[in-house]
């Protein structure tokens, strides 16, 4: 009873705020919540004969079977999580460091140009990346081997060395993506008031101390946002990076196969969307549980930082 009154009261008190939020809510309702009905595809046998999704035969968990049939589910899950953790940690470390360093550089032109250059790789699409990577590392004419030969060293065949690709994939991920989060951190640093720095200077803090005790803590909030969004998709994502770099080279699968690439490769020849949906459901539930836990922990530590 009390709650209902609360809602109505809130509605009338903040009606302008509600109106401002309304378009966004409607957008997500239509664009994202409606299509969620399609999750039901994961539990039926797709069939052209029945035009209605809910008339198709319910098959329980049959569509999920292919995930564990190959005995790879655990390996794939661990691979995916492992890569994502490495991505999250390294990208944030790198982009925070560079953003802090950049913010202290005074040369106007140098700063402007390097800042743009560091952001450049983000513009390279993955299909182009795959061509570049192949031309850097292929055995016969790759740039790497050409250089090695000129130096009198033995050429290396990277495409048959699975462990090397763990590092290559991480390096190219960083190369391509750290600029994006760096811009976010730079913008956050811009928002920090000069007064903090002035006060610290008077207290005798040197530039390292100021960066460590003022700038870095002020980035915490931004970091938490990036973290929570990354964690929610911990079983998804980066399909293009992995698929374009590795392609169908089975030699590298043991270290580079993630859930998304597995699903793509196994279902390329099937038109039944049930299994693809099933894989998505698995990823979603995993991310959902993880997020609920992490958000609750963050809330316990500092309410301000929690996402919801």
């Amino acid at each position: 009873m009390r709650k209902k009154k609360g809602l109505l009261h809130e509605l009338s008190k903040n009606r302008i705020l509600f109106l401002m939020l309304l378009p966004t809510l409607l957008y997500f309702l239509i664009n994202n919540y409606f299509p969620m009905i399609g999750i039901y595809y994961a539990f039926v046998q797709f069939d052209f004969h029945s035009s209605n999704l809910f008339q198709m035969d319910f098959v329980g968990l049959k569509n999920f079977e292919f995930l564990w049939k190959s005995g790879k589910l655990l390996e794939l899950t661990l691979n995916t999580i492992g890569y994502n953790i490495a991505f999250i940690v390294l990208v944030n470390f790198l982009s925070i460091s560079v953003a802090v360093l950049l913010s202290e550089i005074k040369g106007k032109w140098f700063k402007k140009i390097t800042q743009s250059v560091l952001f450049l790789p983000y513009f390279v699409s993955f299909v182009i990346l795959s061509v570049i990577v192949f031309n850097l590392f292929n055995y016969d004419q790759g740039v790497l081997n050409t250089v090695l030969e000129r130096l009198g060293a033995e050429p290396v065949d990277l495409y048959s060395k699975p462990t090397a690709w763990i590092f290559l994939i991480i390096i190219f991920f960083l190369w391509k993506n750290f600029g994006y989060s760096m811009v976010i951190y730079l913008a956050t640093i811009t928002g920090i008031s000069d007064e903090y720095y002035e006060a610290a200077k008077i207290d005798g803090a040197n530039i390292f101390q100021r960066a460590w005790y003022i700038t870095v803590p002020m980035l915490k909030n931004t970091f938490v946002i990036l973290l929570l969004f990354a964690l929610g998709g911990i079983l998804k994502g980066q399909f293009d990076l992995f698929y374009q770099m590795v392609g169908n080279n089975g030699l590298l699968f043991s270290t580079t196969d993630i859930l998304d690439t597995y699903v793509y490769r196994s279902l390329r020849v099937t038109f039944d969307m049930g299994m693809a949906t099933a894989a998505g459901v698995y990823q979603s539930i995993f991310g959902f549980v993880l997020i609920m836990v992490v958000n609750t922990i963050i809330k316990k530590i500092n309410k301000e930082y929690a996402l919801f």
């Binding site: 049959k62 569509n63 079977e65 292919f66 049939k69 190959s70 790879k72 169908n248 080279n249 089975g250 030699l251 699968f253 043991s254 196969d257 597995y262 490769r265 196994s266 279902l267 390329r268 020849v269 099937t270 039944d272 299994m275």
Partner: peptide, 18 residues
Amino acid sequence: YQAERAALEQVMKQYLFP
């Protein structure tokens, strides 16, 4: 055998292609 077929597709690429 759609589940088996999907799983096999991957096994083929991983072990037979090389």
